[in-house]
Nucleic acid binder design. Structure first.
Lengths: 224, 224
DNA sequence: TTAAAAACCTACCCACAAGAGGGTATTTAA
DNA sequence: TTAAATACCCTCTTGTGGGTAGGTTTTTAA
């Protein structure tokens, strides 16, 4: 990874190529449309079996047209992953739960309701997470980081609750954090396989409710 | 789908082609080796991005050689799925838990230990389950059936335990059954992504232990 | 107004896929 | 022993993939 800095060689005065245009006005919408299309394709077919021509066709472009905006398939994937990180996490991490586990669990449940409303993105992450266990997958490191940081953040929320006395003494917050993540992922698979008979939100909610009753000091559930 | 039956036109006597050979002696081992190779490839690359030539090369065959044994990629997938169903489930379903939830949960935990010892098969199922949410995936119906039958069987084990008084009154056995499945799937993903820092068995065990304490009438966990 | 950059396109290349067709050598069982 | 089925392999077809090269039109900003 070497960065090339432009150095002017001999002239002190700068004729300096003048900028004659910027991006077109409509370009942003195009790029957005491409990302949406890519999300749908990655969700349906995974990364490997999605194809640039098809993603392009879905937004009325040729492959070459698409590749003007995202110069490789990997770059497109990166952009998609980045997009999701922006959308979903900012809200969550800003929240202050005031050492109340029930509020925290409630927020997680709310997140799954959001996920259920965005089947494209949600299924895409489900498929890519499984696919990316392959070390040669371009998103392998991304998902390793992602899972680690989610568990870190989640247990970071819960750990102080033990000291604050709202979570039971001896609660293994890293186990709980990983477990919540596992339940969400697992139910997402079931929901993706059979959306008409499964509700992502309510199944996760039920789990969190029972979890809450067994790890909070006051034994409260989510339904109050 | 029309079946063509061979009809002898005029002769009533039947010269009747005689069987001159059967399968070769070594063929079974070959087919077995192909299946093992396919499992590894499906686990690493999913179904779509696995390729017949590469699977073949891994057992020292050409693609055509492989296709003599499995005449299409889909047929190979079917054989792999069938193989797994034979291997893993026979033992489990034969078990009698004597209305003891702890024994049942213990058996589930034991299953994950087995899964952890078979990373190829386990990861393959993890990847295919996610991939097959696509309705055009050749294993789509298989996984729908599979998930339904697991939940059916699992809740079928637990339901009588309520009447027997070993599971708490009001326990939602279908929710619990689906939840256990979700936890196993979810932790499998985490384990596949980072095997050195995650133990599939112990994470699932911890979950089942807490589950057991909160749904059994005697509040027993798995550690006794 | 105009030149340059942006936003496309067509036409390629090369690699690889699934599968069919048509072989040859090996093994089997009568 | 021997004919037929088996277990391969080589080649071809057709299709698709990612990516590049070089054009043309459209938009932008000086």
């Amino acid at each position: 990874m070497t960065m090339q800095t432009e150095v002017s060689q001999k002239s002190t005065e700068r004729p300096k190529r003048v900028r004659r245009t910027g991006p077109y006005k409509a370009a942003d919408a195009r790029r957005q449309a491409i990302l949406e299309s890519a999300i749908e394709h990655f969700a349906q077919w995974g990364y490997f079996n999605s194809s640039m021509p098809k993603i392009a066709a879905d937004v009325g472009l040729t492959k070459a047209g698409l590749m003007h905006h995202f110069s490789s398939k990997e770059e497109l994937l990166s952009a998609v992953l980045e997009l999701r990180d922006q959308r979903a996490f900012s809200a969550f991490y800003a929240e202050d739960f005031g050492n109340d586990p029930v509020r925290y669990f409630g927020q997680v449940a709310a997140q799954t309701a959001f996920n259920e409303s965005q089947p494209g993105l949600t299924q895409m992450f489900s498929v890519l997470a499984a696919e990316s266990s392959n070390e040669e997958h371009p998103a392998h490191e991304y998902f390793q980081r992602r899972y680690k940081s989610i568990v870190d953040a989640s247990s970071g929320f819960m750990a102080p609750m033990i000291t604050a006395g709202t979570l039971r003494e001896g609660t293994d917050v890293r186990q709980i954090a990983a477990e919540i993540l596992a339940v969400v992922d697992g139910f997402t698979i079931q929901w993706a396989l059979d959306k008409t008979n499964t509700s992502l939100h309510s199944t996760v909610f039920n789990y969190l409710d029972r979890l809450s009753r067994s790890v909070t000091t006051d034994g409260r559930g989510l339904g109050d």
